[in-house]
């Protein structure tokens, strides 16, 4: 059955990618930790931290949750949450940093 073959091929393809995605998230976590450990602070550091969180969040939503091809509505909901939360944190930080 074509549909099953397609699904198997898709699953195997996703499986091959998942290891590198895991490694990327480990590396980004170490970057965030290093920023904290070496005492970085201020707007640029916060921007890097939040962008790192957005990249990791995107990988989780797209590749761990496998929402890559779902309806536009749910992609907007999930990515909208990710961007909305991080943007709000950044704007509040900017205001407090004045």
């Amino acid at each position: 059955m074509i549909r099953d073959e397609k699904r198997v091929k898709k699953t195997i393809q996703n499986h091959i990618n998942i290891h590198s995605i895991w490694l990327a998230m480990v590396a980004l976590t170490i970057l965030s930790y290093a920023l904290g450990k070496f005492g970085f602070s201020g707007i640029v550091s916060v921007l890097v931290l939040l962008l790192t969180a957005v990249v990791k969040g995107t990988l989780i939503i797209r590749d761990f949750m496998e929402l890559r091809d779902v309806s536009l509505l749910w992609r907007v909901i999930m990515y909208g949450w990710l961007w909305g939360a991080t943007l709000a944190i950044f704007i509040i930080y900017l205001v407090s940093n004045k």
Binding site: R7, T11, N14, H15, I18, S32, Y33, G36
Partner: peptide
């Protein structure tokens, strides 16, 4: 404790990675 926070992040990410592997396994 930043180390604890960072290691906990790695633990959760790695745990999620194995959950993805589990989903792939059952699909096959």
């Amino acid at each position: 404790n930043k180390e604890s926070g960072a290691v906990n992040t790695l633990l959760l990410i790695t745990s999620s990675y194995f959950v993805v592997r589990a989903v792939h396994a059952i699909k096959l």
